[in-house]
Amino acid sequence: MNNYFSTLRSVSQSVEGVLADQYKGVESMEIKQTANHLNLSVQACLKELTQSSNFLRKDLQACLVTLDSAEDKWQSKQQVAEIDTSEVLEAIGQVVGYWNQLQQQMEKITQEVIELEQRNWTLLIEELREKFFLDPKTQEQRVGIGWGDKDRFKLVFPSKLKLISNNLDQAIQAIFRQFRDSGQVFFEETFFFVKLLDVESQLQLNTEQVQLLRELQENAEQVSRTSDAYALNLYQMVGGVIEEWNKRFGEILWKEIEDLYKKGLEKIEERVELIIHDRLKLLEKCVQQVLLFFNDLLEKQYRYQQEMLTQHKAEKVWLDQQRHQVKELLADLEKNLNLSIPT
């Protein structure tokens, strides 16, 4: 390419000399017309050559970026090969131990919440029984209620039920809020080792971790959001029954309330376990990602240690050779592009 630039510049200078009457015997009108046409053609060639050189410069700069990335990976190989394996195994033990402890804690708290909310549900039903289904004179159990008692019951029961239902969801939310930062705790075990990787791998891992942590945060705030099912809350579960009471003329039977009570006990346990299990799966994804990272790190360490014996120095020499050649080409190209081009 240097020869092209040099030759075209030489022709351009010669043309300018003819047009300026610097050459004796080369002064006719015809030769000057030729010189003018030639000058236009030469300038077009120089313009095309300059544009091509600019494209080539971008490609050569991209080559250097590729080689820089390769050297970053090469340096990372050395750092990974020199990791103390016992530190990796210790970090794995910390993650597994904390995960087991976390599951036990969540199971314990989950059962406590289920028992508490089932007691609250039982107390509500007993309160309603005493208020509406016990004869005020004889204190005997009524089979059913109608007329005024029925109307008052239909006003009181939904509001009480909604309160119990909301309290249940708040209790579920409180459980997970206690543990939503656990994902960050798991990832913290990887931070030291991630810094030993090349920049590209670091960015990829950080992106994956941020995405999972964001998902944990969002799900901590949305109780009814589950990955595999939409869990109806306690209030929604009996909404159809209340609607049916409003439509019919007959009594509300105590047996209906007993059936609702049994379903409510089941629903409380089902809802708490479903949602907490769903959130635990998100935390488990964090644990799996961390353990996969460490497993991959140990596999790479073993491979890199084998390469260190034969390939490592040779790879460095090869990278340096390619970088030297590309830099020479780029420097030569920059030199030509920076030279002034005659017009």
Rank of each mutant, 00 (worst) to 15 (best):
L40G: 08
L60M: 07
D135G: 03
Y4K: 05
C63M: 09
V11Y: 13
R142S: 07
K108P: 00
V18N: 03
R9S: 01
T7D: 09
Q75A: 09
M29V: 09
L40K: 11
L38S: 06
K137V: 15
S12D: 07
D84Q: 10
K73C: 09
E48R: 10
K77F: 12
E127V: 08
D72P: 03
L134M: 12
F133K: 02
V42W: 04
K24H: 12
L46S: 01
L56T: 15
D135T: 01
F5S: 01
S76P: 06
E127I: 02
A35I: 05
E130M: 08
K47G: 03
V11D: 06
K150C: 04
F5V: 10
V95T: 01
N100R: 15
L49V: 09
A91W: 01
N39E: 11
A70I: 02
Q13D: 08
S10W: 08
T138G: 03
Q105P: 00
E30N: 12
H37M: 15
Q105L: 10
Q118D: 00
Q105M: 08
L116C: 03
S28T: 15
A35P: 02
S14A: 13
E126V: 04
N39S: 13
Q118N: 05
E16M: 11
Q43F: 11
L64Y: 00
I83C: 03
Y23L: 08
T85N: 05
K73D: 15
F55H: 08
D72R: 01
N3S: 13
